[in-house]
């Protein structure tokens, strides 16, 4: 059986960073030889969240901000599925902020690709949680008045075991990051910088292009203090690559019957198994 993924005609704007992210995702999955029926992409709502419609996978396109909870449910139900969350910065860090924080605490084995264009696309140009202070938008006429959220630093402080940053304009680099995130046992966050060609006139393709640089070979991604410095480096220079990585016990491994048993979805159901529970009530 082929591991080839079909692509469907997207409704993204011409020049949108999402095209490159989709290309990288397709390449990553094909190179890892994962078959389409073995992967589930869970998404919320937003331009990024349309991903499951544009590539031939199992897809759960749920509610805005709510991609992580169903992804956890899917993985718990069937540990054999590769679960990927694809969602934007507003979806993940705004509406879904609480799920993002508590998802990290669980360290469940999913790869999370956040399309971070620092703006709201689908709702036409309002500030996102990562829009810079002072930036003028279609809603913040006097400029944004709240501090931006730093997703990588937040993930590190929450104890995430895999924290990375990619750039939609560097496909080979992004493919490698995605593959590593998918292979990683635990929650893997890849914050992917991408331009929004219509609504973000500040963080343009060239804005990112001129700033991003690959973390050097010598960079030690197991050093948390260094990682925090790199996570906070977001200005004239922006590092991309795996910022932090460590092996950690995953959520699934903390359930003996999942770790050492069949996927829950394969457990035979028999009502009579519950008969013995009546005893404690006698």
């Amino acid at each position: 059986m082929t591991c080839k993924y079909e692509l469907y005609e997207p409704a993204w704007c011409p020049g949108c960073g999402n095209y490159m992210i989709r290309t990288a995702l397709k390449m990553a999955l094909e190179e890892l030889e994962i078959k389409p029926h073995e992967v589930v992409i869970v998404s919320g709502i937003g331009q990024a969240a349309k991903m499951p419609h544009y590539i031939s996978v199992n897809g759960f396109n749920g509610l805005h901000g709510r991609a992580i909870p169903p992804a956890i449910g899917v993985k718990m139900a069937n540990k054999e599925l590769h679960v990927i969350v694809e969602s934007g910065d507003g979806d993940t860090y705004g509406e879904g902020g609480n799920h993002f924080i508590h998802g990290i605490r669980r360290n469940i084995d999913i790869a999370h690709f956040v399309h971070n264009n620092q703006i709201y696309g689908l709702t036409k140009g309002q500030a996102s949680p990562t829009t810079a202070m002072g930036q003028i938008t279609t809603l913040q006429f006097d400029g944004v008045k709240v501090e931006p959220l730093n997703p990588l630093a937040l993930a590190l402080t929450m104890g995430a075991g895999f924290v990375a940053r990619g750039f939609s304009g560097d496909i080979p680099h992004l493919v490698a990051l995605m593959k590593e995130a998918i292979k990683y046992k635990g929650y893997a966050l890849v914050d992917i910088l991408q331009p929004c060609v219509v609504w973000n006139r500040v963080n343009t393709f060239s804005w990112y292009k001129n700033r991003v640089y690959h973390l050097p070979e010598s960079y030690d991604y197991t050093n948390k203090e260094e990682a925090m410095k790199k996570a906070l480096e977001f200005g004239d220079r922006i590092p991309i690559g795996v910022i932090y990585k460590e092996e950690k016990e995953t959520y699934l491994d903390r359930f003996d019957f999942i770790k050492n048993g069949p996927p829950l979805v394969d457990v035979e159901l028999n009502p009579l198994d519950a008969e013995k529970l009546l005893e404690e009530f006698r």
């Binding site: 759960f60 992804a71 449910g73 829950l264």
Partner: peptide, 8 residues
């Protein structure tokens, strides 16, 4: 809903 979608 995620768990049910995946079959349990």
């Amino acid at each position: 809903l995620g768990a049910s979608y995946a079959g349990v």
